[in-house]
Design a protein around this nucleic acid. Sequence first.
RNA 1: GGGUCAGUACCAGAGUGGCCAAAUGGGGCAGACUGUAAAUCUGCUGCGCAAGCUUCGGUGGUUCGAAUCCAUCCUGGCCCA
Length: 428
Amino acid sequence: MKPNFIEELKWRGILHDMMPGTEEELAKGMATGYIGFDPTADSLHVGSLAQIMTLLRFQLAGHKPLALVGGATGMVGDPSGKSAERNLLDSDTLNKNVDGIKKQLSHFLDFDCGANSAELVNNYDWFKNFSFLDFIRDAGKHITVNYMMAKDSVKNRITGETGMSFTEFSYQLIQGYDFYHLWKEKKCKLQMGGSDQWGNITTGTEFIRRKASGEAFALTTQLIKKSDGTKFGKTEGGNVWLDREKTSPYKFYQFWLNVSDEDSKSYIRIFTLLNQQEIEELEAKQQAAPHERHLQKALAKDITIRVHSEADYLQAIETSEFLFKSKAEDVSKLDVNNFERMLGGIDTFEVSKADVANGINMIDLLVEKAPVFTGKGKAREMVTANAVSLNKNKTTDVNTSINLSHFTGEKFLLVSKGKKENYLIKLK
RNA sequence: GGGUCAGUACCAGAGUGGCCAAAUGGGGCAGACUGUAAAUCUGCUGCGCAAGCUUCGGUGGUUCGAAUCCAUCCUGGCCCA
């Protein structure tokens, strides 16, 4: 028996709001619904993962999911939640981004399972030949400026202090037209998205109603919050991406493992398919032995395997064990091959052998040759603050000279900055 | 086009001729305590080992001395047309 989509979202704490009648519509049988993804970068990040999971749950509940990549909307820029005008992306970048995102989305959904197979669409396809005059006549005529101005995304900017360009103002109309297009061409009756998308989505349902007297529905999900109020999905290194070239599986795994106790309870519901009973069992275990972090481990495992692979997950664990548990002796026992395999997932700097052959001051090495630190002052500060280890040996003397003998197999040196950040220096 | 207000470090925001590398808060980083959690406490947070150097939208000027005064330009808000 297939799960009920709405019920599923409710107990997981994902549902934020939906239009009246949405639940009844879905109960009638297979429905088609979509979520849009912005091509602001060439990879999706963990924030988009929540929406991907929503689409996946939609499909698992027997419905047909459409994933829309915003090739056209990306050219305009969504003002929702933005306090300032965005920079426009040029079309080369945009195309590259659209391709990258399409590729990623195709990993998560089932595109070959009969009637409710997922589909990937790009709104650029129906906007590229749409002239401006046609658009303002066919679309613009159905929505009043008064209606558009009443949206929070617009109101905030008008009453705020930055203003808003006509380009961004018109964004909601473009997204609204998308919904209409999919409604007409694919019988898509539901648009989903984060709660910040409510305004844009309802412009779509309104548009469908006014232009075609049609019925369409909206459903929004809770924005992912962190208990400390900071932005979800960022680490020291910036965004956490789904692309392994941008965020290695090891770092990806670490990101989830480092989630706070409080957040892990909601994340495990949002980002995994584990059922209610499994989650409650994990919570009980967590309660009994908080330091074992059952929730974080289960969360990190599930997501790492889904986004990367089982092998990547196992490697991430091995690397983690090594980096966090090992002592200096353990590092010295590693041979070159193990070093390479174990630490492939951390940031690596290549330094020429000649630079260290005659010995080099550690500060110079870590700033100029392998920029672990951004400035010498910073580097000195960290070293004196007892924050830097070389091959797991705490090093507090800024005058330490590094030579070949410090490198395992004359090839690798593990530099740790603080407790959690590790870098590999590789001689070539 | 006219009027008006504004532009300060990652962000917010004080400073309105020397005491200013620039208050304060937030964020970030590190240390201690822990569990790679949270909370708390401590230190750091323009560059430089240092002397010193470069910063307060841009440029030019006044002055012994400018983030601060003047001119001009750029950018943005609001109001009027």
